[in-house]
Nucleic acid binder design. Sequence first.
DNA 1: TTGTAGGCGTTATCAT
DNA 2: ATGATAACGCCTACAA
Lengths: 340, 340
Amino acid sequence: MVTQSDVARRAQVSFITVSRVVNNKGNVKEDTRERVLKAIEELKYYPNTCGRGLHYNKVNSIGVVMATTKEVNIHGTYYYNELMIGIEQACINNACDMLISMLKQYPGQEFDYLKLYYERKVDGLILVSSKLSKSQVKDIVTRNIPCVVIGERFDKAKISYVDSDNRNGIFTVGEYVIQLGHRKMAFLKGMGSHGHAVDRLNGFNDLIHKYQLNIPKHWILDGNFSVESGRQALRTLLAGDEIPTVILCSNDTMALGVLLEAKEAGVRVPDDLSIIGFDGVDTCRFTNPTLTSIRQPLIEMGNAAANMLFHKVKQPDNSQEIRIFPVELLPGGSLKDLRG
Amino acid sequence: MVTQSDVARRAQVSFITVSRVVNNKGNVKEDTRERVLKAIEELKYYPNTCGRGLHYNKVNSIGVVMATTKEVNIHGTYYYNELMIGIEQACINNACDMLISMLKQYPGQEFDYLKLYYERKVDGLILVSSKLSKSQVKDIVTRNIPCVVIGERFDKAKISYVDSDNRNGIFTVGEYVIQLGHRKMAFLKGMGSHGHAVDRLNGFNDLIHKYQLNIPKHWILDGNFSVESGRQALRTLLAGDEIPTVILCSNDTMALGVLLEAKEAGVRVPDDLSIIGFDGVDTCRFTNPTLTSIRQPLIEMGNAAANMLFHKVKQPDNSQEIRIFPVELLPGGSLKDLRG
DNA sequence: TTGTAGGCGTTATCAT
DNA sequence: ATGATAACGCCTACAA
């Protein structure tokens, strides 16, 4: 490894002069400066992050933490990927690298969201869909740990977060669907451990209350965000004596499952059944019919979270910043207008 | 920040004893050990990566470097994402974090592939589709820098790499297409700066030679891997007096562009024109007709590269390891059988 | 303008 | 079994 001392020896100066040149401090004769720069170039000297980090207590990386089990591929999941696109852009603008935590969740074990920061592997954290424990929340607040959560809300603790308006989104889209003449609506839930899945379900319940919809209990279906659980949901619906005119799904992956199953079961979409997804993944545009969905601005959300984080890293305080992003209907062929 | 000294003070021992406990060295009385562990727990002490890194010259992260311009979102690109899924799995198994380089490529400037390693931000590098300079190659070899390249080949220098058999893949699929009765074939190129784009073109040229195909020059089309360049390619073809029966595209994104443009231009797929992509992206399964493509086992490739890298990190040497993965035809509705 | 001394948090070596 | 000391590479404060 090439150190400042190596450079110093070659340039015939003391290592401290090298440090000055590297950090663009003044007080170095132009002559010496050039000799040092030449030596740096020749030896390919790079400042050692550990050495620097020890001093500054900063390493110029931020961490992205997603509490998933070993089976989930972060990079194979649309939701995470879109967020990362936004984070990525912010990192580029802040000349900062992005460390992905490979820590995995195991049942019955508290997930260590803050590890990367405590170890000083990163200067701050983006916590995606994180269920923080009371003690973790307390640590973040009292120790001023720079972090921003995406997709979970903290209304009691002063933790900054970014989220989309899931509840209101489902509600608004639901109202629109009702205007199109639908009353027989099914809802495919996501995993209850995810805050946004809960919010979406709540939005649907809001709808039921406001419009006094009479929805059979078994039309509120359990799902786990997978294609297979979408297929299963449709099979469950078909087993009943009546089927709804539309099914709202808590994510697109499940909606695609419903669509695939419908094709195989001879259910015509949208004539026999309308399908609405949630997320607005690329694939929506290519299915037949195209998939109507609800789009969250994930890229912007990731970007906003990262920018908030960079701000915190520069000026650590325990102020709480909150940003809620509206969702929008992504029109597609899988939703039928029942009027006229 | 909580240091070993803090723990030591609380546990009434010297900081060196704390170090012993943390690293599971022997020579600590069970009694003291427990006192120390308790203090660690209470104070939430975590070893500082910088401090450790300085000593071990290892930080337990590997770097993934993709030389792209600012406009490209790594996490928005199927090719990179699939590779990362494979890398991700290997990282999990090796309890190692994954640092994504946010260094960007600027015209007329040599890309600094090795920065992350020289800075000791990571213990080794995965270089994706990297055009290394002579000097970089030399540095890697002489300094024993642990690194593995994906998607570019090094036959003169002892640099380890993983690649798919692009050339032979296009050739083999081409032979199959010919067996189906096609002779009028167009080819949509990728950017010449990418080694695999060149290999694919070479594979097509092999085909032309072996089967003495008489392909008009303007059926070998320029492309840049984007949807738009796919659309443009079809417009170019349609402007000619004759159109081919099939177009082989250097990636799926362009093939999707051709498909979209065909729909708008009233060209029936596959009756008027067969389309074959390359990559096997998810979207292929959802288009109408489904897209025939050529699949590279990107996940396995990423995984193999990462495992090779971990091996090198553990035992640095300048041995060269090479793995070439076969590609396979991904059947779809966009390829017509012209026989009978 | 340049150099010396000390410390950041950790671990290895050597002493006690 | 435990502790003191030095070293890793770097930077700040002070001295020359």
